[in-house]
């Protein structure tokens, strides 16, 4: 009984610890500017005025930070393009690699897996300059592709590891049954294996998307204009402009968080199944 209660207390503490900063940002985004200086926890006169800057399509506003805020929709589209491409690359390359590692015995497969894992331990800063030179020499600076490629390099190893483990829980007999039922090897993969592993694929796809969405270092390094700039980098521009109201910055923060949050809630069940579950025939 006491054990159970302490478990709940611990879980509750963790939830508060994790959500409090977000909750406060969300609360601030609905406050009039003067309420922030009064150190309020909750908006007393809630307003959506802070958000209006971000949807000021005609560009009328001359408020501080308005120039940056006006670029937000475009930056969100950039982030969406980059995140979706990273997700698709992870799913196609990742599932094929993981399938091979899970199903086909070949020389050096363990070494390859360890290499993937090892590549995760290299800090981004360490390869920042070589990466920059590489992108410059291929003429990829300030393109979506440069950010997509760099994000894929650090999300793919994780994807392969998770998917390999997940694929190994699929009974081999399922594919064999599909073969006997008349499928070609590729047909068995498409009609039986992939549908069965949907939770795992959705989970790693969303992880890859969110990782890309939240990445800052490489995105900052490779992008210079709004043509390719993702929303995380744009949001940091507020720091360079003096006296942007904190409430406006908070509204921007909420807009950045919103999409990954919605995705996580929508696919919650599949993500949990994909990471913690297994497939049984």
């Amino acid at each position: 009984m006491w054990r159970r209660a302490s478990l709940y207390i611990y879980a509750l503490a963790a939830v508060i610890y994790l959500t409090l900063p977000f909750a406060w940002v969300a609360a601030v985004s609905f406050m009039p500017e003067r309420e922030v200086t009064q150190q309020r926890w909750w908006p007393e006169e809630p307003t959506i005025g802070n958000y209006s800057l971000y949807f000021d399509v005609e560009g009328q506003s001359a408020d501080v930070g308005a120039a940056i805020a006006r670029q937000f929709p475009r930056a969100i589209v950039n982030s969406l393009i980059i995140g979706t491409a990273v997700m698709l690359l992870n799913l196609t390359c990742g599932s094929l690699a993981a399938y091979a590692l899970a199903r086909l015995p070949f020389r050096g497969n363990l070494l390859l897996l360890l290499f993937y894992l090892g590549s995760r331990s290299v800090p981004g800063v360490a390869i920042m300059i070589p990466m920059y030179l590489l992108m410059r020499s291929y003429g990829l600076l300030d393109t979506h592709l440069s950010v997509i490629l760099s994000h894929t390099t650090f999300t793919l190893p994780f994807t392969i590891w998770i998917l390999k483990g997940y694929f190994q829980t699929v009974p081999l007999d399922l594919e064999r049954a599909a073969r006997v039922d008349g499928c070609t090897p590729l047909g068995a993969l498409v009609r039986v294996f992939l549908p069965v592993t949907t939770p795992g694929l959705v989970a790693v796809g969303i992880f890859a998307f969110i990782a890309s969405w939240g990445e800052f270092l490489f995105a900052l390094l490779f992008t210079t204009t709004i043509a390719s700039r993702p929303v995380t980098v744009l949001a940091s521009d507020f720091a360079q402009e003096l006296q942007v109201p904190f409430t406006v910055i908070a509204a921007g923060g909420v807009l950045v968080i919103l999409l990954p949050l919605v995705l996580s809630f929508l696919f919650q069940r599949l993500i949990i199944q994909g990471i913690g579950g297994s497939v049984t025939g």
């Binding site: 007999d173 399922l174 049954a177 070609t184 069965v196 497939v279 025939g281």
Partner: peptide, 17 residues
Amino acid sequence: PERRDIAMVFQTYALYP
């Protein structure tokens, strides 16, 4: 296997979940 005239029952049943 897909072009042999066979059917198979597996120990794990292998039903498509």
